[in-house]
Computed example of a mutant assay.
Amino acid sequence: MIFSSTITDIPEIFRLYKLATEYQKQTFPENLWPEFEPDLIRSEVEEGRQFKIMIGKKIACVWAISYNDAVIWPEDDGRSAIYIHRIATNPDFRGNDFVKIIVDWTKKLAKAEGKKYVRLDTCGNNTRLINHYKKCGFEFLGMKKLHDSKGLPAHYTNADVCYFEIEIE
């Protein structure tokens, strides 16, 4: 069900990002994903940090992880957490609780790698998404303005960022 993404998946990953942005326009247009740099996605795939959920022969959901997110989480030591980024669900498969599946998978990975936390963030005061992440087991740590977004995708520029964390037992 969960697999590492491959180079041949990149066009579908970008298609899902585009569809996710279209969905954002309908549900929370205040903060939309930009077009992501192809080199970023290619690097994640090559480094084994881009994943997919397959249903049959279709990609149902994609996401990436990172092991350091110093600009968004400056207090982190770079060894404490796994960070989940850019979850995008194929509209044909919405409603399948993929975030919960991703969270459970990431918690197991974090535990196996000796991490203390699974973290994620989102931009803007999207109460619907905040509540969804809380239902998936995240503690909402609050929101603050991100003033230095150097090296991050464009939607982080001067953004209000919501912080979420799950402590690994």
Rank of each mutant, 00 (worst) to 15 (best):
Q26D: 11
R79V: 04
T106M: 06
R86I: 05
Y67W: 15
W105L: 06
I72R: 12
I101T: 14
F93M: 04
Y67A: 05
K58R: 01
R49Q: 10
D104W: 05
T89H: 02
S80M: 09
K52W: 06
I65V: 14
I55F: 02
E47P: 01
L40R: 09
R79A: 15
I72A: 07
I65C: 11
E30K: 09
Q26P: 14
K57L: 00
I84G: 00
P74M: 11
C61T: 04
A64K: 11
I102Y: 05
F36M: 09
Y67V: 08
E35Y: 03
R94M: 12
Y67T: 13
G95P: 07
Q50C: 07
V45L: 05
I72N: 13
D69C: 07
I87D: 04
F98I: 00
W33E: 06
P74L: 14
Q24F: 05
G78D: 08
D97S: 14
L40N: 10
W73M: 15
D92I: 11
D39F: 07
F28P: 03
T27V: 11
P74S: 13
V45E: 03
V71Y: 06
R94A: 02
Q50P: 03
V45Y: 12
G56H: 04
P29L: 06
A81W: 00
K58D: 12
D104A: 12
F28I: 03
G95H: 10
K100N: 14
D39R: 09
W63H: 03
W33P: 04
D104Y: 08
R86S: 13
P91F: 11
R79P: 00
E46S: 13
P34K: 05
N68E: 15
Q50R: 01
E35V: 10
T106L: 04
F51G: 08
V62S: 05
S80W: 12
R79T: 15
K52L: 02
Q24P: 01
I72P: 06
F28L: 06
Y83K: 09
V103C: 13
S80H: 10
P38F: 02
V45A: 08
K57Y: 07
Q24Y: 09
P29V: 10
I55K: 10
S66A: 11
F98E: 01
Q50H: 06
S43I: 05
S80K: 09
E30I: 03
I84K: 00
Y83W: 14
I84E: 02
F28H: 14
L32R: 07
I53M: 06
Q26C: 05
N90G: 00
S43M: 12
A88F: 00
T89M: 13
R86H: 15
F51T: 04
N96M: 15
Q50L: 08
G78P: 08
I53E: 01
H85Q: 09
W33G: 09
I84N: 02
I101Q: 15
E75S: 14
P34I: 06
P38D: 12
Q50Y: 03
W63L: 01
R94H: 13
Q26M: 11
I84R: 02
I41N: 04
R79C: 10
N31K: 03
